[in-house]
């Protein structure tokens, strides 16, 4: 009766649902995860309180020194138009975070719903949805992005749209697989035998068991989205100038790299920090919630 698995499960101390404090406690033991959480917090706070932190107007072109090195007046120097780089970097975190959260939020919500429907619905619907998911996934991401932005014009909205569309099938597929595994479990049959409606079963009994791993995956996808957004801005396909943005700062720095290294450093450091922060946090959350869930789903 007692199998070694039971002991293992007990010994792994898989936390129960609703044990937020237990997660925090575990996170405290995971150094890298804690570092990630701090970095994420830092990036968030700087974007949120950007107007309070920044020292100059990020889009005001000043008559002072251009491409200046860091000084007391300009903490990270100035760019080719004499704008304060520090203020641009602080303010420039808002767009990547907005893009990341809007696009991943949309794709998580839609992916979850589609995945639940595919996993729980009739077989033919499952097949149709899978066909659609696979069709979308078969487009090379960057080509798809270029095509869509070519059609809609470069803007934050089109970037969000592109990322959302390409991420939906990934989350939907994972949600579908998880739902399908749960579908035949006894507690679902027990709910059905009590007369629970399908909506209720999906919302109350399936969703909470599916959403955990997905949220972890989303948090690990945030850096990729930030990188894609910065990449598109770098290519001139993201936000329009003079809006401050990490990718845009990086692009400016690339153009003037022979004059000064500071712009490149200022533009890339926040991207690196945000990427590392979300990756560490995501991995820590994955280890805490589901030791079995590999990165390679």
């Amino acid at each position: 009766m007692t199998s070694i698995q039971a002991i293992r499960a007990e010994a792994n101390g898989e936390p129960g649902p609703g044990t937020f404090l237990a997660v925090l406690r575990q996170l405290r033991k995971n150094r890298l995860g804690l570092l990630g959480a701090l970095l994420v917090l830092l990036v968030f706070a700087s974007a949120m309180f950007a107007p309070l932190i920044m020292t100059h107007d990020p889009i005001r072109i000043m008559v002072g020194p251009r491409l200046a090195a860091p000084s007391r007046e300009f903490l990270l120097g100035t760019d080719q138009l004499g704008r304060d780089t520090f203020s641009r970097v602080i303010m420039g975190g808002r767009i990547p975070l907005l893009v990341a959260f809007a696009s991943l939020g949309i794709s998580l919500a839609l992916g979850l719903v589609l995945g639940l429907v595919a996993g729980f619905g009739p077989r033919w619907l499952d097949n149709v949805l899978l066909l659609i998911f696979d069709t979308i996934r078969s487009f090379p991401g960057i080509i798809f992005a270029l095509a869509v932005i070519g059609l809609l014009g470069p803007s934050v909205t089109s970037v969000i749209f592109v990322i959302a569309i390409t991420s939906i099938p990934i989350y939907a597929r994972i949600a579908r697989t998880q739902t399908e595994a749960l579908r035949n479990s006894e507690y679902i049959a027990a709910e059905q035998s009590m007369g629970a409606s399908t909506t209720r079963i999906l919302a109350v009994h399936v969703l909470p068991n599916v959403i955990g791993p997905l949220v972890i995956l989303v948090s690990m996808d945030v850096p990729a989205v930030i990188a894609v957004q910065a990449g598109l801005s770098f290519l001139g396909l993201g936000v329009r100038p003079p809006t401050p943005d990490w990718g845009a700062v990086l692009n400016d720095g690339y153009n003037y790299i022979q004059n000064t290294p500071w712009l490149v450093i200022a533009g890339s450091t926040p991207i690196v920090l945000a990427t590392l922060g979300f990756t560490f946090l995501g991995e820590a959350l994955r280890d805490i919630f589901d030791p079995k869930l590999g990165k390679d789903i």
Binding site: M1, T2, A6
Partner: peptide, 18 residues
């Protein structure tokens, strides 16, 4: 009964413990 450690004992002899 369950939790008595009987399987653990068997696994210990085999050296197949977590």
């Amino acid at each position: 009964e369950s939790g008595s450690g009987k399987s653990t004992l068997a696994y210990t002899v085999m050296g197949l413990l977590p």
